[in-house]
Write a protein that binds this DNA or RNA. Structure first.
Length: 603
DNA sequence: ATAGGGTTAG
């Protein structure tokens, strides 16, 4: 009798368990049907009704689904409702929650918050937890926090796990001055698969250390680790940064040869590389050959930005229209590219229309960059007064970039007194920013006020402000060369400087007159003309004329904007030496041919 | 049942 009661109890409990499990399964499949927030809310009601609102597994899945509906907050409000039922908390649930916040913009701090909350609840993190937490640290670029988390990783013994290690390197490489720690960690870890290499190569690219990125890629090949599509994206990114077209072409053929999967991201990286390494038509061909389903907003934006950089504004605009017809939603970045295209091509009316359409038709709130594009658009078109009014009407505080755009416009369109006033205000706000002084000096040069111009230089010297040195990169068959102004580190300096002198003679014979108003401030006045001849792009062009076959195109990449003087000189050189010269400056391409530039002297 | 790296602008 006692025996059968026991059996009965057992049966009862197993029936209960079975039915609870059935309810749980039922909930999980119901959750899969929740493809909208209202449905999820309905589901939540159901959850309470069947008493599974504290079931860890169901709540985890609930979190997952909410995050896909961009509503993680809803999940956390359910989990941590006014009466928290802490028995439902487990590691898996917290991991999912931290992951969701770590992968959402502007929510990295919340991810960290739930990590610390998890610890305070006495829930032990596992090796799955740390990649998410470290990703959040990387996202907010918080080195000290990342280091603290690293400490916990070591204490809990997760520092031998490959995934955790890779995310640690990622975290260090994402934080300012942290790349050294990242590199040290990378050097010490086992490196048998491409992920660690990709992270480290990406770290170098992120901080503009592109040649280090390429050397590391070479080390990876020597180590016999097969690169994958992620690695190739990173290497392409380095090529793009350096303007290394030949290296980029090699990457493309390598991808073909090794049958590396051409994901959207890899195609986009290739398109961007070709566009920014001066072969915009090849970029367009790649884009056209990309299957329509693979073309993302980034693909379209890369093409629009590329066309804008090459001064092909009308084509950028028609690509934008085609993108709309293709049903791909433009984002805020696409509009920056589009407005830039309008600006560089003098399409004022179109630019204004698109700026309004951005908010009205696409619901995108303009950011400071978009306002900057509009100020640039009006300024370049000579509408300085309108640009000023636009700045005063802007609903957000103008930043120094906006003021500098206006100041340049004042100088170009001879509103010198206004320009002087704004620049002085800007210097009060930003006393250590070198280009503010250069702007002021340029305005005085145009006013022919040499006394004030030299005062500006004295002030700069007294405050210990020096100008960012101009540098130019050039890729030849045997590698990439970098020149800085007055450079004498290339072993062939004598020949290069002889060539510069010869160029100068030929240009003068052709009627070239040196103008010195844009001369850098850190150069002695009496040496103005000589200094201009030593600008890095002149050195690079002289080097290219010496080292490359007659008639071939010369491609160079500058870190700053090209100065008026070098611009004029390069036009002359393209004519005298019968060379096409493609110059990528900080903002755009200049295509010099037969004494003319594609920018039509408007940049 | 939750693991690691990516492209556009600034």
């Amino acid at each position: 009798m006692q025996h059968s009661a026991k059996l009965l109890r057992f049966l009862h409990s197993s029936i209960f368990t079975t039915s609870e499990r059935a309810a749980e399964q039922n909930c999980l499949s119901l959750l899969q049907l929740c493809n909208s927030l209202p449905k999820l809310t309905q589901f939540h009601a159901h959850l309470v009704k069947v008493g599974l609102h504290a079931n860890p597994l169901v709540l985890t899945k609930f979190t997952h689904v909410s995050s896909h509906l961009n509503a993680v907050h809803y999940a956390s409000s359910v989990i941590f409702s006014p009466e928290p039922t802490s028995q439902c908390y487990d590691t898996f649930l917290f991991n999912t929650l931290i992951k969701a916040y770590a992968e959402t913009n502007n929510s990295k701090h919340t991810a960290i918050h739930y990590y610390t909350f998890m610890l305070s609840c006495g829930i032990r993190p596992n090796k799955y937890t740390y990649p998410f937490v470290l990703k959040a640290c990387a996202g907010i670029m918080d080195l000290r926090l990342g280091q603290a988390v690293h400490g916990s990783v070591v204490r809990l013994g997760f520092c031998y796990d490959t995934h955790v290690l890779n995310t640690l390197v990622l975290m260090y490489c994402s934080c300012e001055n942290g790349i050294d720690f990242g590199e040290k960690l990378f050097d010490e870890m086992p490196k048998c698969e491409p992920v660690s290499w990709s992270v480290m190569i990406g770290g170098f690219v992120r901080w503009g250390m592109s040649s280090e990125a390429v050397s590391l890629f070479r080390r990876m090949q020597i180590a016999g680790v097969k690169p994958d599509e992620f690695t190739m994206v990173m290497v392409l990114s380095a090529c793009t940064d350096m303007g290394a077209l030949e290296l980029g072409r090699w990457v493309e053929s390598y991808v073909e040869k090794e049958k590396i999967e051409k994901t959207s991201e890899l195609c986009n990286a290739l398109i961007d590389m070709y566009a920014k390494c001066a072969d915009i038509d090849k970029a367009l061909r790649l884009f056209r050959n990309m299957s329509k389903s693979k073309r993302t907003t980034v693909s379209w934006t890369s093409m629009i930005v590329g066309m804008a950089m090459h001064g092909r504004g009308l084509e950028a605009v028609s690509l934008f229209e085609e993108m709309r017809r293709a049903g791909v939603a433009p984002d805020d970045v696409a509009f920056i590219g589009l407005l830039n295209a309008c600006s560089h091509s003098g399409l004022v009316k179109e630019g204004k229309r698109y700026f309004n359409s951005m908010t009205n038709d696409f619901g995108i709130t303009p950011r400071i960059e978009h306002y900057g594009c509009m100020v640039d658009l009006l300024s370049r078109a000579g509408q300085v007064k309108e640009a000023m009014e636009f700045v005063h009407r802007m609903p957000i505080e103008p930043n120094p970039v906006i003021w500098r755009t206006l100041i340049t416009a004042c100088r170009v369109h001879s509103e010198l007194n206004l320009g002087e006033t704004i620049t002085k205000e800007l210097i009060t706000d930003e006393p250590m920013h070198d280009s503010n002084y250069v702007l002021l000096s340029n305005i005085y040069a145009k006013m022919l006020n040499w006394e004030m111009k030299s005062t500006v230089r004295e002030v700069m010297e007294k405050k210990g402000i020096s100008k960012v040195p101009g540098s130019t990169m050039i890729e030849l068959d045997d590698g990439i060369y970098e020149f800085i102004a007055g450079d004498k580190s290339h072993g062939q300096d004598e020949k290069i400087y002889e060539m510069v002198d010869e160029m100068e003679k030929e240009m003068k014979r052709a009627g070239y007159i040196t103008t010195t108003s844009d001369v850098l401030l850190d150069i002695d006045e009496e040496d103005k003309e000589g200094a201009l001849n030593r600008h890095s792009e002149k050195l690079a062009i002289a080097f290219a004329l010496l080292k490359t076959p007659r008639g071939t195109t010369i491609r160079i990449v500058k870190n700053l904007r090209v100065c008026t003087n070098c611009h004029t000189a390069t036009k002359f050189i393209s004519n005298i030496y019968n060379r096409e010269i493609l110059v990528r400056d900080r903002n755009r391409f200049h295509h010099f041919k037969d004494g003319f530039c594609s920018c039509k002297d408007f940049w």
